[in-house]
Design a protein around this nucleic acid. Structure first.
Lengths: 213, 213
DNA sequence: CCTGAGACTGACCGTTTGGTCAAACATCAA
DNA sequence: TTGATGTTTGACCAAACGGTCAGTCTCAGG
């Protein structure tokens, strides 16, 4: 007995687990947990269904594996927000990192969105724990910047929500964005420019000084 | 044979169809199309499963009925944007109407989000037709306002996307918002205030004149 | 060559799911 | 009361689903 679920030792085990997770990300992000089937995942992975279940105990185990790996990388951009840096540049950098994530990892964004939409039944503790405490920590930093007059004094929690909403929208609602814009557009490039302007205007300190055009 | 699917005549038919649609909205918005079952819908409606199928031809027919009724009410707030009104006030009113919709009709918002997330398989034509043409029309109006210097000249399509993203976020990601804010908050009231400030700052004409605090 | 642990599969199982159907029940005008 | 129409249901079905299992194949180490 090799017990691949607890000890992914051999090369072939690591490799196949990787292939399965990749395929499952495709399927789960496109159809949701309930909408995805083991047969779809197995087919996408190029393996038989029993073989998939040889590497993961159940459909839910695959899903949990994806979600648990997701939270860390999802929080990384916010974690990188440096209290010692320049306030405006730190926040704009955060927005840029989030837009890049939406562009480069849209499936992860949709997997996350699917989970939250349905009440986050499998992520409740991570959201109320890890995520909340990180947000509270960074919100305090941003509130401090506002109190010092280094940026406009806006509610930091809702500022963070607005960054999430605006950046993830382009990944989660990709089909709608592309349909409305029509052909010949690069949604993520345009979004990057638009959001840079938006947050620059929003956060410009209210000292009567406008940022140069 | 009464054929309730094409002619909802009698009082009891209209009433039961209504009850079923209401129950289905609950279930579909919470679990997605695939995640919802006819038994759940029937139980929520207080009817037997065969009785539900007496009023609707199939599970998909219920879903389509909900979606088709949704598009109109979903576009209404944008449709009400008046080209002859005051630019800033028109856009702020639009934001207010959208926030109210997120607050009062979160299930509809989540139903919509679920559908778009999964590639809008049953709404593609409505999005590329109705929705796109309305957005293009209103975007032209907003672009005109920008060109006249009555508001800041921002990309009107992405302005509309940002309004969608910011307002719908509070309905679609409700559990996350509440978990992060913690108890003792009214997310929609706070969002209303925050977004009013955000769009006021964003759209203030760049005539060197800052809006009064 | 053999051996044995690891990797893989076809056949199968119990449950759930969307949907059907014949029969029963309700309602009401004639 | 009767009959006709509209409404409701228990029993049932085929397909799809997640998952199991006995057994086969593979292949490196001895």
């Amino acid at each position: 007995m090799s017990d691949p679920n607890t000890r992914p030792n051999s090369r072939i085990q690591r490799q196949n687990r990787e292939v399965i997770l990749e395929a499952a990300l495709d399927v789960f992000s496109a159809h949701g947990f309930r909408g995805a089937t083991l047969d779809q995942i197995a087919a996408a992975a190029g393996l038989s269904k029993p073989n998939v279940l040889y590497y993961f105990a159940s459909k839910e185990a695959i899903h949990l594996d994806l979600l648990s790996g997701l939270m860390d990388s999802w929080l990384a951009p916010l974690r990188a927000l440096d209290p010692a840096g320049d306030p405006m540049e730190e926040i704009l950098d955060y927005v840029r990192r989030k837009i890049e994530m939406s562009r480069d990892y849209p499936r992860e964004s949709r997997l996350f969105a699917n989970e939250i939409l349905q009440g986050a039944p499998r992520m409740a503790e991570a959201i109320e724990g890890e995520l909340k405490s990180l947000v509270d920590e960074k919100a305090a930093v941003i509130r401090g910047w506002g109190a010092e007059g280094r940026i406009a004094a806006v509610d930091p929690h809702h500022l963070i929500f607005s960054i999430w909403a605006l950046t993830q929208h382009y990944a989660d609602f990709d089909v709608q964005v592309r349909a409305v814009l029509g052909p010949g557009h690069d949604p993520f490039a345009e979004a990057g420019q638009f959001l840079e302007g938006l947050f620059t205007r929003l956060l410009a300190p209210a000292t009567g000084q406008m940022p140069e055009a």
